[in-house]
Every structure is written in structure tokens, then in C-alpha cells.
Design a protein around this nucleic acid. Structure first.
Lengths: 273, 273
DNA sequence: AACATAGTTCCATATAATGGAATTAACTCA
DNA sequence: TGAGTTAATTCCATTATATGGAACTATGTT
């Protein structure tokens, strides 16, 4: 007897994007177009990128502007609205997982002296939820909320490894294996093989696979009660300073940090049942 | 013949909130309810706070979940989704005004040694767009995107002072003069009188009006071509260290910083009315 | 186990979104 | 400056989508 999934968990799968349905979905698609463009877009530019008719798109944009999700500058170019900052500020401050994880990643940072990341898997991307670095480079805001492909980052691969097989394969099929560096994994087979290693060792590495000169070791964080939530912690550093030996020496502490976070989450959530 | 305002600038006025119309508006209202609640809300809680019927609200929430704007935890409580972080990260990084202002507020920070804010007025609230503090308190992310009432903060009052009179009065009428501290301005008359001072001197003060122990001096940033955009910079510090004399000594440099930012934005100074 | 409360689904109806085309505004260049 | 061109905005009959009351299912409580 298969009990029907609750709507909530049932639909989160598809990453936001182009094929969105419903009025809200279309509006967010437009927002996405504006967010993901490197160029500043005017109305006609968005028109070309979206497949909406003129009138429709125009009203959608008007609505987004009304809500403060989009702003227009003097050249009639669209930018993301400050309302998004407002929401995000609260999303971040109120995020239970981040709050729970904060002291642990702080400890990890102190122990290693290198940059520490907390990442959450969203479909086949990783969203960086938190970051601690020594030489606080002032402008970290833009880093938090940043996304990176899951398949070529330590946080990403660690998080992927925590997925149930079926889910994992479904997602891996949709990955486009863009070769960011010479070390980037080339295809699904390579990725799956590495994930199998990660599952047995409990650690994922990034050996300059996303960006040359950047290496890291990561460990997965997952919840068995809610299998769709997977995340991870990592210690990252420049390859010239952080040797493979150093990375290897941090495997245990990253795993311990991940475990500690899972424990804290479990405690945090248990008073219910 | 009155030329019709373009939709863009015409509708930005109302702050997001309860009276929103259209499908998107209603969805964002729901998001707002969840964002602004101190408690974790379950479905029925949101139902009470919104004036939507059960079925409708349920679908709206489902859609928001689909788009990643809302997440549900195991207790069926709603939280803001990480998708918002993703958008906000780009909104912040790509914000032209912030980018232009960044070097100037950095200089202001170096000159004063105290915390510097860059705030943008949104209706009767201020959104903090950037912040530089000495002892980088690591977790500044939640600060950026934060909002504060305009009437009791330096940044807020400075920005208000740059509004055209008509607009100013319209907004001031809607302010609820909640007494955050004994020093908080009590009513519209007091605020308008102070704004008149700000207009002639070019500086706004916050004398522990929002939070006891916090003082600041601010200067407005505005654009004549787009009167609805007003912002400001401020230097803030703890009252025990930052004396009124020190604040007074920073009036000129805050004004200069504001001017420099306006210049960089290629904005012409408007004559004061 | 029975009750109570919370969450989800259904479907005829009303309402809001649609989109093609016309209108107006904003550039461009002679 | 003004004709020519491109971009932005508005209009409105049609259609698709959101609506919302009520029935239903699941969850938690005494």
C-alpha cells in the first residue's frame, strides 16, 4: 500500500526554470531570465529569451515590478529588485538548518584554519548556505546564495552521495558534464563511480574540478526521515597551500562535523514525536 | 495633455503587503506572511493570517513550494525557501547602485573607523543594501536586506528628506509612530520638522531613536531624474564611544560621500525646495 | 477506539491571464 | 529638424486559470 506523498515533498524535484506552469511559475521564469543574464536586459531582450507573447510578458513584468521583485533603471533595463534581499535576509536568518550548523562549522573552521562551506543540494546544483573564511573578504554576501554545479564540487558530490539510488540516477541523467577544468569529471559513469567511493569512505574531494587551484574535502549531511534533504560541509583551500595530505588529514573532522550537525538536527526536531 | 506615466514608475509606490491584487500579488502576500512571522507557521496559521479560503491558499502555497520560494519542514511548518537566497545573491552582486557606492562607503569607513551603512528607501522603510564594519562580525548576511522603519533611523530620515513634498506627506501619513525608545519621534509633526532641518543642513541624526545606545549621522542620496529613488549613507556607532561631537565632526564627510556617490551615478543634484 | 483537528483534493463557476493587433513613445540618421 | 525605424505600451474579445465551498483523508489527542 503506497501512501500518497504529501504535495509538499512530492513536487520539489524540478529545479526552477523554463518549463514552469501556472501563473506564478511563469512569473518566476521571467525572474530567472533576468537573474541569469550576464547582460542587462531591456524589454525586447527578455521577449526574445522567453517564449511569451508581447502583451503577456509585458503584464508579467509589470506585476513583478509592482511586487518589488524587479526594478527598472533609467535605460529601461531590468534588475532584480531589493525586495528579494529583504526576503533572503529573513530566509537566511531564520533558516533552522543553518542555525543548527553554525557553531559546528565555526569549530571546523577553527580546527582547520581554512575556509569552510555549508552547502545544500537543490536538484543538481548546490546552494551555499554559509561560509566562514579567515581573511573575511568583507563582501561575502554575494557568496551566500551562490550556486555551483553539484557534479564538480566537493559539497555537491558529497550531497549527491546521500541521495537514494533511484533519485540519484534520475538526477545524474540530467547533468551536463561541462569541463570546467582538465580535472572535471567527464561523464555519469565517472561520477557514479566516485559517488560509490564517497559512500564507502564518507568523504568527497574536489581536486580542482570546478576551478583550477581550488581543492576541498567534504562530508555529507542527510536526514533519513526526509531523504530529499541532503547537504554537506567542506573545507576548502588553494591548492598551493592545501596539499593532498592536508586534505586527507581533515577527512575525519569533516565527517565528525557532519555527524554533529545531523545529531543536532535530530535533537532539534525530535521533541515532536 | 498629461503624458501617461510608464507602467514601471507608476506603480512602484505601495509597499508589498496585504492589499495586493492579481495572482502574483496574492502569492507574494502569502510569502510575506511567512517572512514576517516570528513564529513558525503551519497551514492553519497561515490560513488565519491570510483572508484566502482554504482551497485557494493551499494551492497558492503548493505553487510557492514548487518554485522553491517556500520550504516545509517535518512539522509541516513553512519557512522561506533557499531559492530566495539564490535570487538575492544575484540581486546584490548585480546591483548597480551598490557597486557604484561601494568604494565611497569604504573610504567613509576608513576615515571614521566606525560602521557605515548604505540604505535605500522603500515606501516607509529602509532596506540596508550594504554595511561595512571594522570587527567584521562574520554573520553580516542577515543584516543586508534587513529593513528598519524610516522615521526613527538616520538612513531613513535622510532618505525621506529627499522626497518631493507631496510624496513625503503621503507617506508620512501612513507611518505608525511606535516608540522604540524614549527618544523616538512621537508624531508626524516632529518628523516633518526634523526633515525640514535635514533639508537645510544636509544631515540627519539618529539619537538613539530606534535602539538605545546606537547613534548615527547620515546624508541623503537622491536622483532628480527619478524622484522615487532615494537612499542614504550613514556612520553609526555605540553612544558610549561615539559622542555627539564626533557625530558632528562627520557631517561633512558623510555629505561628501553622498555627493560623490551621486556624482558617480551621474545624477544631477536637484535644487532643494 | 472514538473524537477532534489539521491537511488535502475535487470540480462547477467566476475571474484573471492571454495574445494578436493597434497605439504611442523613443531612438537613429540624413 | 523631421522622416524612418525600432522599442515599449495599451486594448479587449477570447480562453484558460484560479477560485472556493464542501467533501474527504490523514494526523494527533483524550
Amino acid at each position: 500500500m503506497s501512501k500518497p506523498q504529501r504535495v509538499a515533498t512530492d513536487r520539489v524535484k524540478r529545479s526552477g526554470g523554463s518549463q514552469d506552469t501556472g501563473t506564478l511559475g511563469k512569473a518566476i521564469s521571467v525572474l530567472d531570465i533576468i537573474a541569469n543574464s550576464s547582460e542587462a536586459l531591456r524589454f525586447t531582450d527578455v521577449l526574445k529569451l522567453s517564449d511569451q507573447p508581447r502583451g503577456t510578458l509585458h503584464r508579467q513584468i509589470s506585476n513583478l515590478i509592482d511586487e518589488g521583485l524587479i526594478a527598472v533603471n533609467r535605460d529601461n533595463c531590468y534588475t532584480l529588485g531589493l525586495r528579494l534581499l529583504q526576503f533572503a535576509s529573513k530566509a537566511w536568518a531564520g533558516n533552522e538548518f543553518r542555525n543548527v550548523a553554525a557553531p559546528h562549522i565555526q569549530k571546523l573552521h577553527e580546527a582547520t584554519g581554512e575556509t569552510v562551506h555549508l552547502g545544500v543540494l537543490r536538484d543538481i546544483e548546490v546552494i551555499y548556505l554559509d561560509k566562514i573564511e579567515s581573511r573575511q573578504n568583507i563582501r561575502m554576501v554575494s557568496q551566500i546564495g551562490n550556486t555551483a554545479p553539484a557534479f564538480c564540487t566537493g559539497v555537491g558530490k558529497a550531497a549527491l552521495s546521500a541521495l537514494p539510488d533511484e533519485e540519484l540516477h534520475e538526477r545524474v541523467e540530467r547533468i551536463e558534464f561541462r569541463p570546467y577544468t582538465p580535472n572535471t569529471l567527464a561523464d555519469a559513469a565517472a561520477l557514479l563511480s566516485e559517488i560509490s567511493t564517497i559512500r564507502s569512505t564518507g568523504n568527497a574531494y574536489d581536486r580542482e574540478e570546478h576551478e583550477l587551484g581550488i581543492t576541498c574535502v567534504a562530508a555529507p549531511i542527510f536526514s533519513r526521515t526526509d531523504a530529499l534533504f541532503t547537504a554537506s560541509v567542506s573545507v576548502t583551500g588553494p591548492a598551493y597551500r592545501v596539499t593532498p595530505e592536508m586534505l586527507a588529514s581533515w577527512t575525519e573532522i569533516t565527517r565528525d562535523t557532519a555527524s554533529a550537525i545531523m545529531q543536532s538536527m535530530a535533537i532539534q526536531l525530535s521533541p515532536r514525536s
